[in-house]
Nucleic acid binder design. Structure first.
Length: 880
RNA sequence: GGGAGCAUAGCUCAGUUGGUUUAGAGCAUCUGCCUUACAAGCAGAGGGUCGGGGGUUCGACUCCCUCUGCUCCCACCA
């Protein structure tokens, strides 16, 4: 079979993915094996694959494939999240483009559009994950709005309501005027924003609603809210304003009289020390208002426009109103001055709209008890965070947790199962029928038509926190008393969760809460937190910057294996990834290396009659040991989730050890056959190497493994056992490495003297060098090896550890140069010796340091002395 | 404003309870090679004193303090 010199992933990747699917290799059912379970962090159902997904899912797939090859029953459950606000706003935008307003639709009509959208765009991301090679059990694909998962959400609401954890109340919430919904505190992003600080004059009232000539000055960033002012507040200790006690002031423009009150909250040294209190539009003002019984006047509507209660500028957007009112204030003589000012402003994570603090009736979940247990789960180590540093952040959040606002003023999601009676009473039940039954306990005359279900849906995270439970057994969520079904009993708790630190609180912490509550056990043992994928310049990838490559383009250009390796290359847990396409090129190059090694090995003809050359026997013995050594290292890295280290160990084993040393050492002369013993060993090594590489680069390894030997139908590398380390001989490995150093020494001389590799040289070795590895030196350095005897001054000299080696080169030696080199080396050695001796002559060192450490220093001393001796001898010989 | 973390070769990072020849890797760089698996390659080489300062210790990249710079998280000073 003639193979091209370059590997073409396009010819193999789809083929093998189809083969894996066809044979159901990804599918898992409970059996007697140990389970290894992972649930996917469900991407938005209408989302498309970005580099963050690539990183996350590659890591996940590596862990899953490795576990599968370790003989575990691996199950990776995929699925998508309905992402209520994100999806709903996309649907709203799409309808708007068609000239349809959401307000003109009924809930049912809107949901029909939303489901259509979901059917059309949903699941694109899952098919993209297949391109990446993700070995998810697609038969288990779930969606957070699948009927049974939605039931789980409803049951959970009912459960917590009955437990007394869910309550309804008027609170200052974070209102998103674009998404037209309240969002949770966690969905608000504070960004420093430049704005202005307006100093406004409020004239003192004469008591009849007429201005006097006296005024006070307040400083505000939001002049458009003055119409909603309920009071002016000063600090009671602020003597500057004691004259205002009992006075009333007039709101500019509308001349409304409001009192001056005193409250400790006001900072005397900030602004003017006078604060306008606007209870409906600021959280602190709301609290001050509550303390002083101030009326609440809400002048901003859902869309962020002034309403009729504002009296002026009615219908204007809050930002337009701000510009206009400033002008009006100026004209009216109420504007003292304007300063530039930078302050943190809250933005909606989803729509990037400026959050409007707003009072509204919302549903809340009490978090205190849940957070306490969830904190304990991490503090006790039942859940391990990787890297560990996130424990601090986690603790801080759990100790300062606030009640969770779980209602959203949206339609796309699970509608809150709360039903209002005509008199305003509320009943909570999973279905309308049950709600009616409950309502009739209050008033038997009620009919279904009298009940009105709450319009709002639940926060998306209120469904995704059930994910590790509900994907296996949705009935269990909300019903801790039920026995788990077979799947849940087998797969729960899951093993590892790979996700980003940005959703540690949103999702990870809440899953732990739900797990503790319903399963009485945590949902996973390890949480591997990835970094954020950034561009080369350290900027976050974003659509607006256009610095985010399309992963599918990369896969098409370089192949999925290359993309996977490229992403993994620089990803240590918790560190951000600075993505650069050159890493993917490196991945592609490695693919090519593996491909070509395969071409070489499978191109050999076995010569049954040939004896195994000594060099080959040595190389086989060495690589056999080396392989075990590296397997052990790799296993250790995997156990510690050091995936990029594991990858690098495998990469070097293949490229440096296998290709650069082993294959060169056993390679038969051109045209000659290879002996059977070496050939079989080589195929065996290649087989092990492919298996080691498979979790990282699944496609090329399957392709080569299938072609390496006759395979039966339905066979796959995927389910082969991962290579196991055998006991290995470190001493022999070290001897072989010394042979490699000797070879490098000779090559170095060839290069500096411009000698062709084909020209055989002599290598003279002083001392008792390891004879067993000499055949490799002979072959790879193209030398004859003999003991060094007599005068070596006409030879190029180098050292391998403490062994002196010479390459006689009559006429090619520059004595001056050699002397200079030796003297430099001598100086280095002497300095080194001095530093070692300084240590050894320190009595306290010898007395306090462990014996092994002292022994090492003595060895250094002895080695250095012997080197100095040989350098001195060579110098003398040269100087003669 | 509070908290956490980071700072090691040109770049991206290791350095696992302070001690294994005066710091390692990958990439990049430089030199020489189109050597019959691979130029997406081969063979070599150079490059850092571990952000600055102080301390603890027989011994510190590794522990403590401090300064500088960066990042992230949390937060209602209008």
């Amino acid at each position: 079979m003639e193979l091209p010199a370059k590997y073409d992933p396009a010819l193999t990747e789809d083929k093998w993915y189809a083969y894996w699917l066809e044979n159901k290799f990804f599918h898992s059912e409970p059996d007697e094996r140990e389970p290894y379970t992972v649930v996917i962090p469900p991407p938005n159902v209408t989302g498309i694959l970005h580099m963050g997904h690539v990183l996350n899912n590659t890591l996940n797939d590596v862990l899953v494939r490795k576990a599968r090859m370790d003989g575990k029953n691996a199950c990776w459950v995929p699925g998508t999240d309905h992402a209520s606000i994100a999806t709903e706003s996309k649907v709203v935008a799409k309808l708007a483009a068609e000239g349809i307003k959401k307000e003109d639709l009924t809930r049912e009509e809107f949901l029909k559009h939303a489901w259509e959208w979901k059917e059309k765009h949903g699941g694109i991301i899952l098919s993209q994950l297949r391109k990446l090679g993700a070995s998810c059990d697609w038969d288990r694909t779930k969606f957070t709005m699948d009927p049974e998962l939605s039931d789980a959400v409803i049951n959970t609401f009912v459960y917590f309501y009955n437990k007394g954890y869910i309550y309804r109340g008027v609170r200052m919430v974070n209102w998103d005027p674009v998404g037209l919904t309240a969002v949770s505190d966690e969905e608000v992003i504070h960004k420093d924003t430049t704005s202005h600080f307006y100093h406004l004059r409020y004239f003192i009232s004469d008591g009849n609603g007429n201005p006097t000539d006296k005024y006070l000055i307040i400083a505000t960033t939001r002049p458009e809210t003055i119409m909603a002012d309920a009071a002016i507040c000063v600090n009671p200790a602020d003597e500057r304003y004691h004259w205002l006690r009992g006075k009333k002031v007039l709101i500019p423009l509308i001349n409304k009289e409001i009192p001056v009150i005193e409250d400790d909250y006001v900072a005397m040294d900030f602004g003017t020390g006078c604060l306008k209190v606007t209870p409906a539009h600021d959280v602190n003002d709301y609290e001050i208002g509550a303390r002083h019984n101030l009326p609440i006047l809400d002048i901003i509507d859902d869309h962020g426009r002034l309403n009729e209660k504002a009296q002026i500028l009615v219908g204007e957007d809050r930002f337009d109103a701000r510009k206009k009112i400033v002008k009006m204030l100026e004209e009216a003589g109420n504007l003292e001055k304007v300063e530039d000012y930078t302050s943190p402003i809250g933005y909606s994570e989803r729509t990037n709209a400026v959050i409007e603090p707003r009072l509204s009736m919302q549903w809340f979940l009490r978090m205190e008890a849940l957070a306490k247990d969830a904190l304990e789960s991490v503090e006790s180590g039942k859940v391990k965070l990787i890297p560990d540093k996130y424990r601090n952040t986690y603790r801080h959040w759990m100790e300062n947790v606030r009640d969770w606002c779980i209602s959203r003023q949206l339609w796309w999601g699970q509608q809150i199962p709360a039903y209002y009676l005509p008199d305003g009473k509320v009943v909570v039940a999973p279905t309308a029928e049950e709600a009616l039954a409950k309502a009739q306990e209050i008033d038997p005359a009620l009919t279904a038509a009298d009940l009105r279900q709450d319009e709002d849906v639940l926060d998306t995270w209120f469904s995704s926190w059930l994910w590790p439970i509900s994907v296996f057994d949705a009935a269990k969520a909300g019903h801790p008393e039920l026995e788990s079904n077979k799947d849940l009993a087998y797969y729960y708790p899951t093993n590892d969760l790979v996700t980003g630190p940005d959703i540690l609180f949103f999702w990870v912490a809440r899953m732990i809460m739900a797990g503790n509550e319903f399963m009485n056990d945590v949902p996973f043992r390890n949480v591997y937190l990835t970094g954020i994928v950034r561009d080369k310049l350290g900027r976050k990838m974003s659509k607006t910057l256009g610095n985010s490559p399309d992963p599918l383009d990369l896969i098409e250009k370089y192949g999925a294996d290359a993309v996977r390796l490229g992403m993994l290359l620089c990803s240590s847990a918790g560190n951000d990834i600075l993505y650069d396409e050159s890493q993917i090129e490196q991945g592609r190059n490695f693919n090519n290396k593996v491909w070509n090694a395969f071409r070489l090995v499978t191109g050999w003809n076995v010569d049954e009659a040939a004896e195994q050359p000594e060099a080959s026997a040595v190389a086989v013995k060495w690589f056999d040991n080396k392989l075990s050594q590296v397997i052990e290292t790799v296993e250790d890295h995997f156990a510690k989730f050091r995936i990029s280290d594991a990858l690098m160990a495998i990469y070097k084993l293949f490229w440096d050890d296998f290709c650069a040393w082993y294959l060169e050492a056993v390679k038969p002369a051109y045209g000659a056959g290879i002996d059977k013993k070496t050939y079989d060993a080589t195929i065996g090594f290649f087989d092990s190497l492919l298996k080691m590489i498979h979790p990282i680069m699944p496609f090329i390894t399957e392709e080569l493994w299938q072609n390496m030997a006759e395979r039966k139908a339905g066979e796959t590398i995927m389910t082969q056992r991962y290579p196991q380390a055998k006991p290995y001989d470190t001493e022999f490995i070290a001897k072989f490495e010394m042979a490699c150093e000797a070879i490098a020494g000779v090559r170095n001389i060839r290069q500096s003297k411009n000698l062709s590799p084909r020209e055989a040289l002599e290598l003279k070795v002083k001392g008792d060098f390891h004879a067993e590895v000499v055949p490799v030196i002979v072959k790879l350095a193209n030398v004859t090896v003999a003991p060094a005897e007599g005068d070596m001054s006409a030879a190029q000299r180098f050292m391998v550890r403490t062994f002196e080696m010479f390459v006689p080169l009559t006429g090619l030696i520059n004595v001056e140069e050699e002397i200079a080199k030796l003297e430099a080396e001598l100086k280095y050695q002497q300095n080194f010796l001095n530093s070692v001796r300084k240590k050894l002559s320190n009595e306290r060192f010898v007395a306090n340091a462990p014996e092994a450490v002292v022994a090492v220093e003595r060895k250094k001393e002895a080695d250095s002395l012997s080197k100095i001796e040989s350098i001195t001898a060579s110098l003398e010989a040269l100087k003669k």
